[in-house]
């Protein structure tokens, strides 16, 4: 049987596009990890909260832009609460304690989001149909292209924000060295609020994209688990790493599922990305773009 290159390419592109959506979630992790050193497990819950708030507001008759702005405000308020009630109290604690606190936060946000709104499945329509279009004989989902474009736009906006604005520079300073940043007069606590808000914005975009693909429901908070292998592959502290890692994981996962899956019983999507990332880490422990690990005694 001749190898079907066209089919291979089709799967590859579908994988790359869905990988772009993973990197969207991974981005939120990276932003928070860089600035506040928290491995924020609640990112998935934030995606759920943003998507639920948005979709419920739309269902109540709010126009899309109003729903978007209101959801943004909810995410900013959340960031302020997290900084005031959690981060400020846990300054200087070990990373694992902060990680645990973020799992607690995860439960809290999940409970609140579903308690205030509800836990039904909501359809979210952004006006882009999930129909395949024909490109050189390959079928590619129109929605996936739209999602990838959103990711690209978001990355450009974030890059400009980080490189060109005053706050962006302060954020990078904090990410480099907390103490040095403090000593030149950058208010750490404000920066944390800003960074968690930015992560909230990323969560909103991720929530919109994933929500309109899968329907807004509890399970979209589990996409956070998909973002973890992306994260270790790309390195915890690297934005480009999150993007490239997402593409690699997305493509690898789809190719494995289609070409290896049938031989071993299928549904290997659940663990393949982790194995891929783990094997990769054996050769490069700090991830693709992570900071070089230097150990001193």
């Amino acid at each position: 049987m001749a190898f079907d290159w066209l089919f291979f390419l089709e799967v590859l592109i579908a994988g790359l596009l869905s990988g772009a959506m993973y990197s969207l979630v991974a981005l939120g992790f990276v932003l928070i990890f860089k600035a506040s050193g928290v491995f924020n497990f609640a990112q998935g819950a934030m995606v759920l909260l943003a998507a639920l708030t948005f979709v419920r507001l739309v269902e109540m008759g709010a126009p899309l832009w109003l729903a978007g702005v209101s959801t943004l405000m909810v995410m900013v308020v959340l960031a302020m609460l997290v900084e005031r009630l959690v981060l400020r109290q846990l300054v200087n604690q070990a990373p694992i304690i902060l990680f645990m606190a973020s799992i607690g936060l995860n439960f809290f946000i999940e409970g609140t989001a579903q308690g205030v709104w509800d836990s039904d499945v909501h359809a979210l329509d952004l006006g882009v149909p999930d129909l395949p279009i024909d490109v050189f004989g390959m079928l590619i989902s129109q929605f996936d292209i739209f999602a990838a474009a959103m990711v690209a736009a978001l990355v450009v906006v974030l890059a400009v924000f980080f490189q060109k604005t005053r706050i962006g520079r302060a954020l990078r300073a904090v990410a480099d060295d907390h103490q040095a940043a403090l000593s030149v007069g950058i208010p750490l606590q404000t920066i944390w609020v800003v960074v968690w808000s930015v992560a909230g914005v990323v969560a909103l975009v991720a929530g919109l994209v994933w929500g309109s693909k899968l329907g807004v429901q509890f399970s979209i908070s589990l996409v956070a688990l998909k973002a973890l292998p992306v994260l270790i592959l790309g390195g915890f502290t690297s934005v480009p790493g999150a993007i490239i890692g997402g593409l690699i994981i997305g493509a690898g996962e789809k190719l494995a599922e289609v070409f290896i899956g049938p031989f071993v019983g299928g549904a290997i999507e659940s663990w393949f990305p982790y194995m891929l990332a783990m094997v990769f880490l054996l050769f490069r422990p700090q991830g693709l773009f992570g900071e070089k690990i230097i150990e001193r005694v």
Binding site: G104, L105, N106, F107, F108, I109, E110, G111, T112, Q114, G115, S119
Partner: peptide, 8 residues
């Protein structure tokens, strides 16, 4: 949901 919130 309330239990989740309190647990967290």
């Amino acid at each position: 949901h309330l239990e989740l919130v309190i647990f967290g």
